[in-house]
Simulated assay, not measured.
Amino acid sequence: MADFVSFPKRGLVCVSGPDAATLLDGLLTHNVAGAGPGACVYTAMLTPQGKFLFELFIIAPETGTYWIDVSEPASFAKRLSLYRLRSKVTIEDKSEAYMVGAVWSAEALPSNTIHYPDPRHSELPQRFIAPRVELPSEAAAFAAYEQTRLGLGVPDLAADLLVEKDFILEGLMDEMGGVDFHKGCYVGQEMTSRMKRRTTVKTKLCRVRYEGAAPAFETPILADGWEVGRMRTGGPGHGLALIRFDRAQKAISEGQELRAGDQPIQLDPPSWMQVPS
């Protein structure tokens, strides 16, 4: 297996200029002040209704310059440009020149690579940004990375949530440090704060276990014919599902089995997750 894996669906967007921090802080769920050359700010961009759009990992190689690891970088850069107006900001999609990914052994990467801990979980491989190079076949490396991520119960919101439909609190983003509930206003803040204050988050991504191959993405999870969730990303033996906990826990307490198609499903929330009561 390779010592690192690049993420083909993710890329790098550079935001720089005197007004870069102000622009980003007004749009994202976390302020970018904590970003540095090896320090990452984990955050998201939402719709005005508080629905998920983009999951972001931001570092700052120098003052006033922010490198953003994001899925669908061209779409993100375009949407960000809509908010720029007269701000003194430059927005560049650098995905053709740089790759982003995860690394088990930093020595395997070029010397001009930036790598930093993944803020979502201490046991995940470090993330990196590096000049784009030709890579050998890395299917095994990506599979190993996904098994690690899913085994820890860590969502990849770009893969596990539906854009413009799901909420980031359903994706455990606040529990992974991606939401600052004390910062100033940002797009989608009202709904996000309301959900947190009123503890209305009954549906969350949760690690699940099963025998054999994963059920297909969006396979309904049923208990006695009633839907209690839907499968999201899965791997051999375990994966993540979006679970309506009040329904699922009631079904389990009544001795009903959860099933995705013909497969029995067991809820297996990780110890760091806040399970809805």
Rank of each mutant, 00 (worst) to 15 (best):
V208F: 00
F4H: 09
V70K: 07
G188K: 09
R194H: 13
L222D: 02
T219P: 02
R149M: 10
F167K: 11
A108R: 08
Q126A: 10
E96D: 12
D268I: 00
F4Y: 12
M99W: 08
G38D: 12
S71P: 05
G50M: 03
Y66W: 03
M1W: 02
D93Q: 11
F245T: 12
S271N: 13
T203M: 15
A44V: 03
T22H: 14
I68Q: 13
E227Y: 00
N112M: 06
P119H: 10
T22E: 11
A214M: 09
L109E: 09
F181S: 05
L23I: 14
L80A: 02
W67C: 03
L53I: 05
F217R: 08
P48F: 14
F4T: 02
R86W: 06
F181K: 03
G188P: 01
M99I: 07
H121P: 03
S253E: 05
M195D: 05
A21S: 11
Y210H: 08
G237E: 08
T47V: 01
T199M: 15
V133K: 09
T65G: 13
A74Q: 12
A106R: 15
I129W: 00
L135W: 04
D93G: 10
P131K: 04
A39V: 03
L157Y: 00
G184I: 10
K183I: 04
E92L: 14
V228N: 08
E190K: 09
A21Q: 13
V41E: 02
R84P: 12
D118M: 13
G34L: 03
V275M: 00
R230Y: 07
I243T: 06
T233F: 03
V154D: 04
P136V: 10
A223I: 09
P220F: 02
T200L: 13
D93R: 01
M231V: 01
P48M: 03
E55G: 01
M176T: 06
A60P: 06
G237F: 09
T63S: 15
K202L: 12
P18W: 12
P8K: 02
L162E: 07
A2Q: 15
S271Y: 14
A251H: 02
K183M: 11
L135Q: 14
T200F: 08
P48H: 10
F4N: 00
M45P: 05
E175L: 05
R10Y: 06
A108D: 08
D19Q: 06
A241W: 02
S193N: 07
K51W: 02
S122C: 10
P8H: 14
A74H: 11
A251W: 11
K165C: 11
K88Y: 10
G178T: 04
A251T: 00
I221Q: 03
S75Q: 15
